[in-house]
Design a protein around this nucleic acid. Structure first.
Length: 490
RNA sequence: GGCGGCGUAGCCAAGUGGCUAAGGCGACGGUCUGCAAAACCGUUAUUCCCCGGUUCGAAUCCGGGCGCCGCCUCCA
């Protein structure tokens, strides 16, 4: 199946062809380690996590690189505010990042390079640019001469004259041209610094990504990703640095994810309207967050609200509930070998095609929203099979349910959802509800017993009173043929 | 101001020239139930922001409006 990817560079959906057959390299800009991650970071992480899973599932041998920026102005300022070293701060925030990513089920990249561990490569790249006349040293700083790189602006679609209008030379900068950007910053007293041919200093933000991506993936590689806000100037500058140095195309496909907004506005550190991953996960299941983040196409803006997370939770519940019911039926012995109705066979065949439909949707520029729609179609079909097996049990359902469940759980792996055992998911929710209700399991059971006694005596008023009072505490009762069951209010 | 994107049901969201406009959340009716819950079945956009145009045919392409958002400064 051909894979189509929207390439920011060409502004078109293109057929993806890897540089080397069966293998590909992907580099995604990681975080600057100075603060906790918010949902915007979660979106980027989850989107590329799913993209990498999909590429691997499609048969590619993927090398996935995601960096950490562990030295820059923000880190220096924040460390100073907190009275700790930049290393301590970066170390702490990288640990926080892993904590969040592990909770979210985002897999580690194959290589996770840090800027401070690649000074040799960074300095070598800057020297190469100076040697070729694309960069110049000025009073301990090194700058890139934007005007010497004719392709500048090709990614973000701007020309130099437009950029001139907004360009300024900040106090303390020693640029020749306001458009030029920093490759190396001379150290001010008290700042962390590394030795270089231009004196002590530290790298600019853009050069580290060029140096590290090319080190691990080669001078030309397949995919470079990141948030849409990085397209300009960060990625534009990466192209300029890398292509000026090598004379080769830097990246073949540029993939940018859209923003998470809140009340329609971009969520960002600078606006202060962000919600951290940690905060969200204290209220919602990590898989509900993943489902929410994947519910819309990765390039579109995605508006966060508590309501949207609740909806995602309901949708996730729907998946788990269906699988849980299916497991229950499987574990209930049935002797009769009644033949299965045609509609059950149709549903079974339909579910068996799920993986293929998801593959197709994902092959069209990673259309997770469409793919998830297919998953929910399968949930409905599974529920139909469950319904039928409840009406007319047959031992033959066992194999049907096992096969369809396996297909659905297997397909969901791509999205990193439904990864728990359904019984565990349901039980965890139920126990949480029980705890929140303030009742003990014993009390709850005796209340259910009391109600069933009332039901036997057809004292509906009393039975309903008990049920209503439990419902108010978040415990829902269901009277099923196999007895009364309690659960959280899903 | 320059560049880019978006506007599909009550809400979220796929679909970007032709089969009944996916799916989720919610609401309503039915089956089940003592009544419920869950699940299933059905209903919930004769129409895709508005106005023109191209076409045998447009939510989808083109032109013009209106509205919203992003980038142009650090930001996933």
């Amino acid at each position: 199946m051909t894979l189509k990817i929207y390439n920011t560079l060409t502004r078109r959906k293109e057929t993806f062809i890897s540089l080397e057959e069966g293998r590909l390299g992907i580099y995604v800009c990681g975080i600057t380690a100075y603060d906790r991650c918010h949902i915007g970071h979660a979106r980027s992480a989850v989107v590329f996590d799913v993209i990498v899973r999909f590429l691997r599932k499609s048969g590619f041998d993927v090398t996935f690189v995601r960096n950490f920026t562990d030295i820059d102005d923000k880190i220096i300022n924040r460390a100073r505010e907190e009275g700790i070293s930049t290393e301590e701060l970066a170390e702490r925030e990288i640990a926080h990042f892993y904590e969040d990513m592990d909770a979210l089920g985002v897999k580690r990249a194959d290589i996770e390079p840090r800027a401070t561990q690649h000074m040799t490569e960074i300095i070598a790249l800057i020297e190469r640019l100076i040697g070729k006349g694309y960069a110049y040293e000025s009073g301990g700083d090194v700058y890139f001469s934007v005007r010497k790189f004719p392709d500048y602006g090709k990614l973000s679609g701007r020309d130099l004259e437009q950029l001139m209008a907004g360009a300024r030379i900040m106090p303390g900068e020693k640029k020749v041209d306001p458009l030029d950007f920093t490759l190396w910053k001379g150290a001010k007293p008290g700042e962390p610094s590394w030795k270089s041919p231009w004196g002590k200093g530290r790298p600019g933000w853009h050069i580290e990504c060029s140096a590290m991506s090319m080190k691990y993936l080669g001078e030309t590689f397949d995919i470079h990703g990141g948030g849409l806000d990085l397209a300009f100037p960060h990625h534009e500058n990466e192209i300029a640095q890398s292509e000026a140095a090598t004379g080769k195309q830097f990246v073949r496909y540029w993939v940018h994810n859209g923003f998470v907004t809140i009340k329609g506005e971009k969520m960002s550190k600078s606006l202060g309207n962000f919600i951290t991953i940690k905060d969200i996960l204290s209220h919602y299941h990590p898989e509900a967050l993943r489902l929410f983040l994947l519910s819309k196409h990765y390039r579109s803006p995605l508006d966060y609200s508590a309501e949207s997370l609740r909806e995602a939770t309901s949708a996730l519940d729907r998946c788990y509930k269906a699988l849980f019911e299916a497991e229950e039926i499987i574990s209930t012995p049935v002797k009769k070998q009644r033949p299965l109705p045609d509609h059950v066979k149709e549903s079974e065949a339909f579910i068996k095609g799920l993986g293929e439909r998801i593959q197709e949707a994902m092959s069209d520029d990673f259309n997770t929203a469409k793919a998830l729609g297919h998953l929910f179609d399968a949930v409905r079909s599974l529920n139909r099979i469950i319904e039928a097996s409840r009406k007319r049990p047959s031992a033959l359902y066992r194999e049907v349910l096992e096969g369809t469940m396996k297909e659905m759980v297997g397909a969901s792996k791509l999205f990193g959802i439904v990864s728990q055992r359904p019984a565990d998911y349901i039980e965890k929710r139920n126990l949480a509800a029980l705890e929140a209700s303030g009742l003990s399991l014993l009390t709850l059971k005796s209340l259910i017993e009391e109600r069933n006694q009332a039901r036997k005596e057809k004292d509906w008023t009393k039975a309903d009173e008990i049920r209503d009072s439990l419902a108010q505490k978040g415990i829902v009762l269901k009277d099923t043929p196999s007895g009364t069951k309690w659960s959280a209010d899903f």
